[in-house]
Design a protein around this nucleic acid. Structure first.
Length: 457
DNA sequence: AAAAAAT
């Protein structure tokens, strides 16, 4: 199967080829013909499956025959609208539209909050065929009459589950009510709650169903490791894990913005190449941090759940949950940042005693029993230093207890834990000098150098 | 109870 057989416009195919893509991913192969045919679509897919291109490519193709180069706004009616939950995702989808539409005389634009609205107005006035937006700022533009939605034919609701979680339902309904010329609606969601089904039932017309990931299930490519850890030891354990695993790049998820700042500050102080991203940071800083992380220049991204969904980062090998998320769905999304497109990934979660309830919810959602693996020296009841661990353990004595556990896996609670589970299988003890990637280059001794950059604005 | 998103 190649892109050429899918019926995409030659200009689009050219851009796809220039990006180095030859073969569509499963969701692209399934979705593109449906979108081209004009049918509504319900897509069950996480980001990283090639979902964005699965709708961007056929939408550009559908708009292409009518494309013209006139500068008159009347001749550039807005025809495709893509709504996303987060600003970063909007920007990312926009980049994709720009890239794949570069050989077409179509205009794309993106609007989201957190940046000056005045800068967004001239391009809108000049006319764009494709607009990517977050709901709040789009409605702001609608009120200011800087955008007219009446000619929109194609609507995409990207990460619809997230938009509902974030309380966008009324905004979305309001926006849809303004799309009086809507002919085709595409709805993508990673999970399928009753609310999503209701939304789909209300706004989709006999949709084609395209599914690439199992519903509410975690990717088998992701190895899930959980370490019990007292809250106050978590930061030390995190540093230990980063030092002893060859992580390459990693996102460290936190539950709160303050927590993310704190962790980032600590890691930075220890010389780690890291930055925090969360909703309290300036939009410009958020975009900058994301850009550096995607380039590979930044190695450790300390994030809240703003980064849990939608961000498409190539081949991210590791994800760490410094804290478990408040909602079990977010756990699925977080660990979905790794193990992408066939590659193996590892998701490590640090679980303190207060998080057992959250853990139970996660296990219920993913229908999978998760084992807690203590890390000696960091987990409750384990006191030996990590270095001393392997030699000192008595395999036979430990084995008895461990084998019993394997036959009837203990529920993953602290109460069930014994301080005796064998060493981490993946632990790679390497001299720090051999894994410099995670560290910043040594800088000139400037006493003030580390102050300020991650702290809140 | 937290995060995200319009100001």
């Amino acid at each position: 199967m190649t892109f050429a057989t899918l019926g995409l416009a030659p200009e689009v195919l050219k851009a796809v080829a220039q990006e180095g893509y030859e073969h569509p991913t499963p969701i692209q192969a399934q979705a593109i013909p449906h979108v081209l045919s004009g049918r509504d679509l319900l897509g069950a897919a996480q980001t990283g499956t090639g979902k964005t291109a699965a709708f961007v490519l056929p939408i550009l193709t559908r708009l292409a025959p009518h494309a013209n180069t006139s500068v008159s706004p009347a001749r550039h009616p807005l025809r495709a609208l893509i709504l996303t939950p987060t600003r970063e995702l909007a920007d990312q989808v926009f980049e994709s539209a720009k890239t794949y539409g570069k050989h077409l005389p179509l205009r794309s634009h993106v609007v989201f909050g957190g940046v000056d609205i005045n800068g967004q107005i001239p391009p809108l006035r000049a006319g764009v065929e494709v607009l990517v937006a977050t709901p709040g700022r789009l409605l702001d533009h609608v009120q200011q009459k800087t955008v007219n939605l009446a000619q929109v034919e194609i609507l995409v609701l990207d990460e619809a589950d997230r938009m509902l979680d974030m309380g966008f339902i009324l905004d979305i309904k309001k926006i849809i009510s303004l799309l009086t010329n809507r002919k085709q609606t595409l709805l993508f969601s990673a999970t399928f709650s009753p609310e999503i089904k209701r939304l789909a039932g209300e706004f989709l017309n006999a949709p084609a169903l395209v599914e690439v990931a199992r519903q509410n299930a975690t990717n088998d490519n992701v190895e899930q490791i959980l370490h019990p850890c007292e809250t106050f030891r978590k930061r030390a354990l995190l540093a230990h894990l980063i030092r002893t695993h060859d992580m390459g790049q990693v996102i460290v998820f936190n539950r709160t913005k303050q927590g993310a700042d704190q962790v980032a500050r600590d890691l930075k102080r220890d010389g780690f190449n890291c930055e925090a991203i969360h909703g309290d940071r300036e939009q410009r800083a958020r975009l900058e941090v994301m850009a550096r992380f995607k380039e590979g220049q930044l190695k450790i991204l300390v994030a809240t759940d703003v980064a849990a969904r939608g961000l498409d980062i190539n081949e991210l090998p590791f994800v760490v949950n410094f804290e478990l998320p408040n909602s079990p769905e977010d756990y699925v999304h977080r660990i979905g940042r790794t193990g992408r497109a066939g590659a193996k990934g590892v998701a490590i979660s640090l679980v303190d005693p207060g998080e057992e309830k959250a853990l139970a919810g996660i296990q219920k959602l993913i229908k999978k029993e998760l084992q807690l693996t203590p890390v000696p020296g960091y987990s409750p009841g384990t006191t030996r230093a990590p270095e001393a661990r392997r030699e000192e353990s008595d395999p036979r004595r430990e084995g008895e207890r461990y084998r019993g556990r394997e036959r009837a896996p203990a529920r993953a609670t602290h109460a069930a834990l014994e301080p005796s589970i064998p060493a981490l299988p993946r632990l790679r003890e390497k001299p720090l000098s051999q894994i410099p990637a995670l560290f910043l280059p040594p800088r000139a001794p400037a006493p003030q150098a580390s102050a300020g950059d991650t702290s809140q604005d």
